[in-house]
Design a protein around this nucleic acid. Structure first.
Length: 890
DNA sequence: TGGCTCACG
DNA sequence: ACGTACGTGAGCCAT
């Protein structure tokens, strides 16, 4: 079966150019559009496995559409030279790929593609059109799917005729009617002024085509009628301009676009010229082409010494003396996502042009005692990568890794906390270092994972250690430059050690208690299931949103609320609204609650309890959250139920690990709003916290202008929602959703809030301006988050960035504060020789286990340490509770 | 593997 | 006119 891919070259190149950060090769040639284009192409080839591929380009100045309308595409800014210089490069690269490209004087890429899709329809060949231009949706058919780029270029959304129907309620051909009515500013297609997408869709749903709309203007009202009638001709012309011409005189046949695959050598040479090192790695082209494998090798050839047996005592001595200074890099390879269970393969150390490798089997032998002593010596500084994981992986094998001086991964996170690819390979690319091979290329992935032969493995570890050595120097300087030394060395680095301690300590969980709750749930579940089947008069999988949707909206005929990509939405919000219509609905909500508890919290947690100790050991990730918060995995202990009593019972299973001890939990009171009071300097808000008032009640008093005893529960609830909204970066829509009120009412609340809390309004305005000016926002401890979308022309992207600008300093500063408290608390417990142990962190809460004799002390010490972690213009406050389990500590 | 749903702060 | 509240992780279903 043939499969064609037709790519709109100009459109994709444009998208790539604006989506990618600037990038040049050493000759100064801009390459970002080429790079983006290429990554997208590779993904397409891999995902779609086409038999035929064509890239079409616009050609010539005079496009036939100009005849009769000279302003077509007139308003468009001139293509910047940084992009136009990349077109010839792109065309050469396509040649190297062996991919055909068409352009034809006087026609646009759209028309060429339109013509080929006509052939595809005639021959019934499965075809994918790839473009950034929604106009192309008009080409969709049973054979032809349109892939539209979104979010840059890495992702595409596929549109079949059914998908278009679902999203717009239109047939593919009606897309040109849509454009005819609403126009397209980017192509200078006028449409009818004042008609946007919403209005246009409404008209088309009623009348079907531009012509029918124009013939029925009588049924329109007032201004709209007038506008449509005065711009009849514009609409007709716009429709014509938006119509893709599908009869281009091509002198080619389908055979001309057959794709046979690329020649590795040719492609390797082309990539090398462009300095696309990561792509060479990705396609494993190192051995290919003119330069053979040399280019991927480190600039200076590493001299690798493998320490394999006790005959290598001398080499080991060399290694240890070389490691005395701080100019080194260490890398410990620990395989597996969960560090508590990771398998350690070995350790490599790079100093100068030398690398020493110690396989794990050797590391554990008697003659390596000196090395182990060095690793365990807190006074011997070590530079590593993901040392948090290393500490856990080695720790479970009896080696206490201490004395981390610098961690390249942690530093990279602070330098850009939104970076989701914190691998050595990616960091080397970003910092212009010679590339480290992808782990996937060395080990394979998934079921194909395999440790390679020793030579390959040792080389890989050496190259990584060498990369750590080089990146350490660069990143230390970067942290310094950004004023982040204190954040790194005084907070995050020490915290990493504190976290590892908590994780290894673990928290004791009573399996029997979970099992007891589990069997209660089981009987409630089976009762709910049979009742649901009875009311539905059929059996189906309640856990399948698809089947549930069919039952609710088709069989039972309940009114569908909103839709998702794949069908009816059945989330809790929808079901709440449906509850009055049918008694099955509350049962389904109940079923959802129960099955969530059963699968995630009973079965899920039971699987994580270590049989030897009865404990659960979570793993806090310190390099994930963009705001600086921690996250918790394997299992997540930061989302144990509390809001509903049924789920809260789960907490009864979390108990102290020593008999007679207690669980003590302390949480910050309103930390985010206190932080907001501090950074905004708003006098009223500060005043409220200085007097330790109930903040939601106080907000209600001020916003509604009433006295404390006049605030009813509804007013307080609204005020609470407004306070939440303020922290999140408020929008009238968001608030209206949350409170189930109209947008207008929500907007009024917000306006009233800002009238009263003018300092907060000023903060919100200032922080957005600051983000626009600097490109980033910071927390009190100089944690930084970049907001590249703050200047985006796309409303959505920009609005999102603005809300993030408002929220991140607040959420991030709160994260800074509790992290400080954790480091202090750990020190204090140690210094005072206390037995109490810090076990968990849940964003604004710390959980300890405490022996009876320390209870009185800890009840005072924990909240005072938390409150004193950072001095603000308002007091910080923490409440403390304790009990025989986590449930009782409330 | 991605989408949906839902648990937490 | 645009379509949203901020930040996470896990289980299950459908593909």
């Amino acid at each position: 079966m043939d499969k064609w891919i037709l790519i709109d070259g100009n459109s994709i190149a444009n998208r790539a150019f604006y989506a990618m950060p600037p990038l040049t090769n050493s000759a100064g040639l801009h390459t970002n559009a080429v790079f983006g284009f290429t990554t997208m192409l590779l993904k397409l080839l891999e995902d779609e496995k086409p038999t035929h591929v064509l890239v079409a380009f616009d050609a010539g100045k005079v496009v036939f559409r100009h005849e009769g309308y000279t302003e077509y595409k007139g308003g468009r800014a001139k293509t910047p030279s940084e992009l136009s210089e990349q077109f010839p490069v792109m065309k050469d690269l396509l040649k190297a790929f062996g991919i055909s490209q068409f352009e034809l004087s006087g026609y646009e890429a759209d028309d060429i593609i339109g013509t080929l899709t006509r052939l595809a329809d005639e021959q019934k060949v499965e075809t994918l059109v790839v473009t950034g231009d929604k106009d192309m949706l008009q080409l969709a058919s049973d054979n032809v799917t349109i892939a539209i780029t979104r979010k840059g270029i890495s992702e595409v959304e596929h549109y079949s005729p059914a998908a278009i129907e679902e999203k717009y309620g239109l047939k593919p051909m009606q897309i040109i009617d849509l454009k005819g009515l609403m126009g397209d500013a980017s192509d200078n297609i006028p449409g009818i002024p004042g008609v946007g997408e919403k209005t246009a869709l409404k008209m088309l749903h009623e009348f079907g085509t531009v012509e029918e709309v124009l013939a029925n203007t009588d049924s329109l009202k007032g201004k709209m009628k007038e506008k449509v009638e005065t711009h009849k001709d514009d609409a007709i012309m716009s429709k014509k301009l938006a119509t893709i011409f599908r009869e281009v005189p091509l002198e080619h046949s389908a055979e001309d676009i057959r794709y046979e695959g690329y020649q590795p050598a040719t492609l390797a040479d082309a990539f090398r010229k462009l300095e696309f090192k990561s792509l060479i790695e990705r396609l494993d082209l190192n051995g290919a082409g003119a330069e053979g494998g040399e280019s991927a090798a480190p600039a200076v050839e590493l001299n690798i010494v493998v320490i394999e047996s006790d005959n290598d005592g001398e080499a080991l001595k060399d290694m240890l003396s070389a490691l005395q200074g701080t100019e080194h890099g260490l890398y410990v390879e620990a395989i597996g996502e969960n560090p508590h269970q990771a398998e350690v393969l070995g350790l490599a150390a790079a100093v100068g042009d030398k690398a020493y490798v110690v396989p794990v089997s050797v590391l554990q032998q008697p003659f390596a005692a000196e090395l182990r002593k060095w690793l365990e010596d807190a006074d011997k500084p070590k530079n590593g990568f993901d040392t948090h994981k290393t500490e856990l992986a080695l720790g479970w094998r009896g080696i206490e890794w201490r004395g981390v001086a610098f961690d390249v991964q942690l530093a990279a996170y602070l330098l850009d906390p939104t970076d989701t690819n914190l691998t050595l390979n990616a960091l080397c690319d970003r910092y212009g270092q010679s590339s480290v091979p992808h782990d996937e290329a060395v080990y394979g992935k998934g079921a194909k994972f395999k440790v390679p032969d020793n030579e390959t493995l040792y080389r890989h570890l050496s190259v990584k250690a060498d990369a750590v050595r080089k990146l350490t120097v660069l990143m230390r300087a970067d942290l310094e430059k950004r004023g982040m030394n204190e954040l790194y060395y005084e907070l995050e680095q020490p915290l990493s050690v504190v976290l590892a301690g908590m994780e290894r300590q673990g928290i004791k969980v009573e399996k029997a208690e979970l099992e007891r709750l589990g069997s209660e749930l089981e009987s409630k579940l089976s009762a709910a299931v049979s009742e649901i089947y009875r009311l539905a008069e059929m059996e189906f999988n309640i856990g399948s949103p698809k089947q549930l949707g069919e039952v609710l909206f088709e069989k039972l005929g309940l009114p569908a609320q909103k839709k998702t990509k794949t069908g009816y939405s059945t989330d809790a919000e929808v079901l709440e609204k449906l509850a009055p219509y049918h008694e099955i609905v509350p049962l389904i909500l109940h079923y959802r609650t129960l099955s969530k508890l059963q699968s995630t919290y009973i079965e899920g947690l039971l699987k994580e309890v270590r049989p030897e100790t009865g404990k659960i050991h979570t793993y806090y990730r310190q390099t994930i959250a963009a705001t600086g918060r921690l996250s918790s995995q394997f299992p997540n202990l930061q989302n144990i139920p509390i809001r509903l009593e049924e789920g809260r019972q789960i907490r009864k299973a979390f108990v102290p690990s020593e008999p007679g001890w207690y669980i003590l939990a302390a949480d910050y009171s309103q930390i985010e709003l206190r932080v907001l009071a501090h950074i905004s300097g708003d006098e009223r808000l500060k005043e409220a916290f200085i007097h330790d008032m109930d903040i939601h009640t106080k907000t209600a008093m001020d916003v509604f202008g009433v006295s404390a005893d006049q605030v009813d529960s509804n007013m307080r609830r609204s005020a609470k929602a407004v306070n939440f909204g303020i922290v999140y970066g408020i929008s009238d829509f968001g608030l209206s959703q949350n409170l189930n009120i109209t947008r207008k009412e929500a907007a009024k609340f917000i306006e009233q809030y800002f009238e009263v809390f003018q300092g907060v309004r000023k903060y919100m305005d200032d922080i957005v301006m600051q983000a626009r000016r600097d490109g980033f926002v910071t927390t009190l401890l100089e944690r930084r988050r970049y907001l590249p979308d703050i200047k985006a022309s796309n409303f959505n992207l920009r609005s999102f960035a603005e809300r993030t600008a408002m929220n991140t300093p607040i959420q991030g500063t709160a994260a800074d504060i509790i992290k400080l408290a954790m480091v202090r608390m750990d020190e204090t417990l140690r210094e005072r020789g206390l037995k109490s142990r810090m076990l968990l962190q849940v964003h604004d809460e710390l959980v300890f286990e405490v022996p009876e004799e320390e209870l009185e002390l800890m009840k005072e010490l924990v909240p005072s340490t938390m409150a004193g972690a950072l001095k603000l213009d308002v007091p910080l406050k923490a409440d403390v509770n304790y009990g025989v389990n986590w449930y009782e500590a409330k």
